[in-house]
Design a protein around this nucleic acid. Structure first.
Lengths: 193, 193
DNA sequence: CATTTATGTCAGTCATGTTGACTTACTTTG
DNA sequence: CAAAGTAAGTCAACATGACTGACATAAATG
């Protein structure tokens, strides 16, 4: 194990974990509100497990989480444009381009020229794409359904509100617009921001 | 734009987005409970934004989200072992080893040989590590505090319950044990699973 | 002493993200 | 109509953080 002894057995060295009174305020660590810190960790664990089952399915077919995200949003919001996806996912054109191309090439997503603006590619899932999207969504939906049930019927409204408020203010309106459009083709009308 | 015309303008082709009645049940897409689907998306957006500010800070100092996760858990649960971290993060030894080594080399984390079992490395943050952990935690804590406030005082208990139930059952007990230990050194006593 | 455990490490690979510059197709505007 | 702007796609080059599998070392345990 090479030379770990150089690293350990030095409690009290210059970098030792002495707790100066001074830095307590700056910590945000153990001294911060423990309930909030617990929520930080709960969010991490919840999200970690939320993506586990779909990740496993994706791995089998050679896709990654990025494919899932694209497929999900195109499936749910049929008619989405590439620019919309970029804005939703907050990734670059290249990153999106790579996975989108694969999804198109392998017949999960199809593109259609915009009716009024033919530069646009309106994205839609194919039957094959919907099938995969459903397969990936199912474990996530049942996980959520279970968690909602276990946390009580009244909880849903609080959770929706909480998660909505976790979104950066700059994007909140955009997201709530997106959620409202539900499955319908996202109109090019109304600002697409 | 090369040959996109081969791809588009073929609504009605074999992969066309026709909606067979047959596959509706299997979809999990637009036909699934829209409230649950909204939660899927809310979770995505919330987590996306939850990690944005720390990611920016990390980028400036040449670290990534992996460093944040390690630093956070070591800071909050001082005395954690490498094996515990592997179990919490569900990543491989190599992935962890790389970021942990950097954190140790750059003086954010120190190791201490286990008192009873000297093979163990009990991990602790240094003053420098605590400072960074606090800096990274602050935007996340204030985001959560804001969201809690906006969703009402009663909401907190529901949210904790919900997020807890989102965790895979196999890990739930482990996590709640971890959360309970709060900041204290995680005893090697009691199964470490 | 042999085995198991905790940790670290090597070499190689892959997925997903990044930036910046450029092209093509099309729309809008002066 | 020509110029400017916009939507999308593409190239090259790169960084990070995951992965696998095999192996090394130190210490504990039977």
């Amino acid at each position: 194990m090479t030379d770990i002894n150089e690293q350990i057995r030095r409690p009290g060295a210059d970098t030792a974990p002495v707790t100066g009174a001074m830095d307590i305020a700056a910590r945000g660590g153990p001294e911060a509100d423990p309930a909030l810190l617990n929520l930080v960790e709960l969010l991490f664990f919840a999200y970690r497990d939320f993506t586990r089952e779909p990740d496993k399915i994706l791995e089998e077919i050679g896709f990654g989480r990025a494919h899932h995200r694209v497929l999900h949003f195109v499936n749910r919001h049929s008619g989405l444009r590439v620019a919309d996806l970029l804005d939703i996912l907050k990734i670059t054109k290249q990153s999106l381009g790579r996975v989108l191309k694969q999804l198109v090439d392998e017949g999960y997503i199809m593109q259609e020229a915009g009716k009024t603006d033919r530069r646009e590619r309106r994205l839609h899932t194919t039957a094959r794409g919907r099938e995969l999207a459903g397969r990936l969504a199912r474990p996530q939906l049942s996980r959520i359904a279970h968690a909602l049930e276990a946390s009580g019927a009244q909880s849903q409204i609080f959770i929706e509100k909480f998660l909505g408020e976790m979104i950066s203010e700059a994007d909140r309106a955009q997201v709530s617009r997106l959620l409202k459009t539900g499955a319908g083709p996202r109109g090019r009308n109304g600002d697409p921001a």
